[in-house]
Amino acid sequence: MNDVSDSVTRAHAMLDAWREHGDARANPMQLRLIEALARRASQHHGEARRVLDARLSNLLDAQAMRDDARDDAAQAPMQSPLASLLDEMNQRAATHADPAELLDALRSIWSTVSAEKRLRESQAQVPKNAGPLNSNSLVHRSLSLMREVSPEYLQHFLGFIDALSWMEALTLASGAPAKEAPRATTKKSARKAR
């Protein structure tokens, strides 16, 4: 029962210290939860008390670790997230002499990732028992062959397809009527002659 009273006593001591110092670092909701759990634990005995004390002890340990982490962070010079991001970007820019090279590298990486994603999507659309002339199967086989023969061409081809689908979506969104393809005309005179 000594461990039981230790966690409640420890909780009261920590709460009193936080109140005494007016510690603004502590989460008020967390402190209220610790207070309520300490009150509840002091009202119970036996197994219920042991469970409540274990939970209280875990909360106190977690709060103490957060306080220690805040103390360590307070000793380190404060830097905003934006400032740290700018520092990191400047360090990376210093390693790359030309920003255009970095942009080209990023575009290349994005094209490769996009092409791989599109290839996986095309494979997902192929039915399990697709025949040799199934359109989804043909598309996937042609994209796979393009990737094997010339990955750069696959990236260029998919970029072209993306541009065409973007233009089609833009045309449909603008409400412009779609033009019908001209139909092949047959000679009616040949039919009449029969």
Rank of each mutant, 00 (worst) to 15 (best):
S84K: 15
D104C: 14
W110N: 15
L106E: 11
A178L: 15
R107E: 13
A105T: 09
A94N: 03
T112E: 14
S165L: 12
Q155M: 13
R120E: 13
E168G: 04
G175W: 01
R118G: 02
L172H: 09
A178M: 10
T171Q: 09
K128S: 06
I109S: 10
E168Y: 08
E101Y: 02
E88H: 06
D104W: 07
S165R: 13
A163I: 04
H140K: 09
A176V: 15
M89A: 13
L143W: 02
F160I: 05
A176F: 07
A173E: 08
V149R: 13
R147M: 05
S165H: 09
A130R: 02
A178V: 15
L103N: 11
V113I: 11
Q125A: 15
E88V: 02
A178P: 03
P151H: 01
L133V: 01
S80W: 01
A105D: 10
E121H: 09
S84G: 03
D162Y: 01
E148I: 03
L103I: 14
N134R: 01
A181Y: 08
P99R: 05
S174V: 05
V149F: 02
A163Y: 07
P177M: 04
S135L: 14
W166Y: 08
R147P: 03
N129G: 10
Q155H: 09
L172A: 14
S122C: 07
S108W: 03
V139S: 02
D87Y: 07
L145R: 15
A124K: 08
A100E: 15
S150C: 11
A176T: 12
S84Y: 01
A163S: 07
K179Y: 07
R147H: 12
A169Y: 07
S174N: 04
E180T: 15
N136Y: 06
R147Q: 12
L158Y: 04
P99G: 04
D104I: 11
L154C: 06
A97K: 15
S135Q: 09
S174A: 12
V149Y: 07
F157V: 06
P127L: 05
A93E: 02
T95A: 11
A130S: 05
I161C: 07
V149A: 07
P81D: 10
R141K: 14
P132Y: 04
T112Y: 09
S80P: 03
R118D: 10
G175E: 00
L103E: 12
Y153Q: 11
S80K: 04
P127Y: 01
A176M: 09
R118V: 03
E152S: 14
A83W: 03
L102N: 08
K128L: 12
Q155W: 00
L119K: 03
R183W: 01
S114H: 09
R92P: 00
K117Q: 08
T171L: 05
T171S: 11
Q79P: 00
D87L: 10
A178W: 00
D87S: 09
L164Y: 00
E116Q: 13
